[in-house]
Amino acid sequence: MDVTLIGQSLVSGLGIGCVYGLIGIGFCVIYNASGIVNFAQGAFVMLGGMITHVLLVRGELPYGLAILLAVLAVALLGVVIERVVVRPLWNRNAPMFVMILATLAAQIVIERLTYLAVDDQPKTLPVFTDLPPVMVRGIAVNMQALWIVAGSLAIVGLLALFFRTTRTGKAMRACAINREAAALQGIPVHSMLALAFALSAGLGAIAGIMLTPTQYTAFDVGVPFAISGFIAAIIGGFGRPFGAFLGGLMLGVVQAVAILFFGAGLKTVVALSILLLFLFVRPSGILGLAK
């Protein structure tokens, strides 16, 4: 096997791994705020790319503005899902599996609405900067991959800053440690849940927008992304946002190398095998469970 070829797939694996990582962080943020695993996470990723495409092509808005509006719209949708689907169940003390089922149903509803509103054709976005790939020792690194890696690192940095220094970030962490104690301290736990949904939806949307120029988006791409993000979160130790990012990188790289050996058709099979491996050997992830 050619060394450059392996290097090449490592680079593309890191790019997609960052995206899995961001989706994984999205899972953790909601899980920490509420103990809920939101199966509609993939819808946010799909909508990020899709709304940007619609604003860009049909709305003829400038690229930057389209991206900004798309992220805000998806974050808003996160709050709507929290209000319409999750909150009523939460108030009725619904069991965990009902919550999971309801969020998956929400995913299907969003997919179908997108299908009806747009169509079933794959859509793509222009690359952020139209420059030739950078050559490093014979390995071509395309600019979009650099954007994804740099963007993801910046977001992870900002999130760390948000959780460490701001009042709201600290309040969210307090909720993650103990919701009742947080409520007794006067932290509005319910608004924190809504905020967690907004944050996680926004993260998903950004991941989707950065990735779409290198691949494509269609109404039904969400679920496989959600599964990869979830696996990233498990590898990192469920509930650890930064562990999830590391897990995403690992998953992306392993998957990219596996594609090289087995072909792209078995992408999901490889991802699931990694999931099963972790569940067998170390279900608490590489960093151990958060608590």
């Binding site: 199966f39 999971i100 679920v223 498990i234």
Partner: peptide, 12 residues
């Protein structure tokens, strides 16, 4: 393991 592991594994 907890329920959501199974849910995701079965979805996969």
């Amino acid at each position: 393991l907890k329920g959501h592991y199974l849910s995701m594994a079965t979805l996969a």
